[in-house]
Amino acid sequence: MLSRTAENIFWMARYIERAESTARIIQMGQRMAILPGPIHREEWRSVLRVTGCDRLIDGDRPVAEADIVHLLLLDDANPSSIRACLLRARNNGRAVRTALTQDMWEALNEDWRRLEHYDVMRARRDLAELIDWVKTRASTFRGAAETGQLRNEGHDFLRIGGALERAEMTLRLLDVKYYVLLPETAVVGGVRDHYQWTSVLHALSAARAYHHVYGGGDYTPWRIADLLILNPQFPRSVSFCFEQIGWHLDRLARAHGQRGAAHETAATMLSQLRSRESGEIFEGGLHEFVQNALIVTNRLSREIAQAYHFA
């Protein structure tokens, strides 16, 4: 496979995953912002922090829902906005059109201009519908790839890109929520605390998984951290994502007859995740773990680009 094709597929997957993750985080922000008390004043700013866009709001002025809708949904000048991500995913897909199935291309191409017809006021009014639309588009694309794409190198780069983006967003969400919600751990088990932490689970479609793993309503931050970082069965956990990354990198290594720094980085990270005990990450410092893990994901992205000669 040409390195340019591999790069386009890799980034197409990342942009699709980023668009969906941003939609989920906006949805979580809505749930959290309606809570009474001082925490709602920081909630929308924390949404910007998760997506790395807090620099786009000047000073310490309060961040409102209208700011979020403009910056993270509609603003094509912000490369992390949903509109920009979907456009870039489509552009990458168009560049490798022959490497995609018809269903994959249609999932990228259908109604792709929809957000151009919205201003902030109308988008706020239809926000729930737009968030569901973004999530459905991402799921449709993944379903088309799952059922129709050849399991070749293109599929490997698609899965690696999506898993790397998903792991990074899960880590960012945990880190930001840790600081916003930590004062509430003094009243763990209260109604407000329960609602805040379950909002994190809902953002990642993890509430049912949490129930199956831990048996119900004791929503504690250390268990949530364990589920979202260490659980190898939950598809949005960091551990699951690195399992996928490692598996597909190994396939590429066998196809090319060589391994490189990216393969070792992924294998080392996965080994570290597997060796952690329940509760160990939270006790040892969630923020420190997440910051180190984000360094790893950023380095891994660069190493993959170098190994497979992305431009």
Rank of each mutant, 00 (worst) to 15 (best):
L273V: 05
R192D: 03
G257R: 01
G29W: 13
R142C: 07
S21D: 12
A261F: 12
A77E: 07
Q27D: 15
L249D: 02
A128W: 14
T297I: 06
G161Y: 11
G216C: 08
M32P: 05
A206D: 03
D119G: 15
L171A: 09
W133I: 00
A209R: 11
R49D: 00
V187D: 10
R24F: 09
V191Y: 15
Y308A: 03
G93C: 05
L270W: 06
M269N: 06
M12C: 09
L73Q: 04
L2C: 07
R208G: 11
G217C: 05
A66S: 13
P183Y: 08
D58I: 12
I57Y: 12
R302F: 11
E243Y: 15
L182V: 10
V188S: 13
H202T: 10
H309D: 04
E303W: 08
I39A: 12
I131R: 08
Q306G: 13
L173G: 10
S239H: 09
A123Y: 11
R122L: 07
L182G: 09
E129L: 13
R113Q: 11
R192F: 12
A99C: 12
R4D: 01
S139N: 13
I245L: 06
I9D: 04
E184S: 14
F240W: 05
L100F: 15
N91E: 15
C85V: 03
E184C: 11
G161V: 02
L181A: 13
D67K: 05
E146V: 13
A311T: 14
S21N: 14
L204S: 07
T5L: 07
Y195S: 08
I9F: 11
R49L: 00
F310V: 00
S271A: 15
G217R: 05
R166L: 02
D111K: 08
R223E: 00
I25C: 04
G161M: 02
G215K: 02
G148R: 11
E303M: 04
C53T: 04
G246A: 15
A145V: 08
F234N: 00
H287I: 00
W105D: 00
A261C: 09
I26T: 03
L74A: 01
D119R: 07
A89G: 08
R24P: 08
V296A: 12
V180H: 12
G217W: 08
V187P: 07
R151L: 03
L130A: 11
W197N: 00
A167T: 04
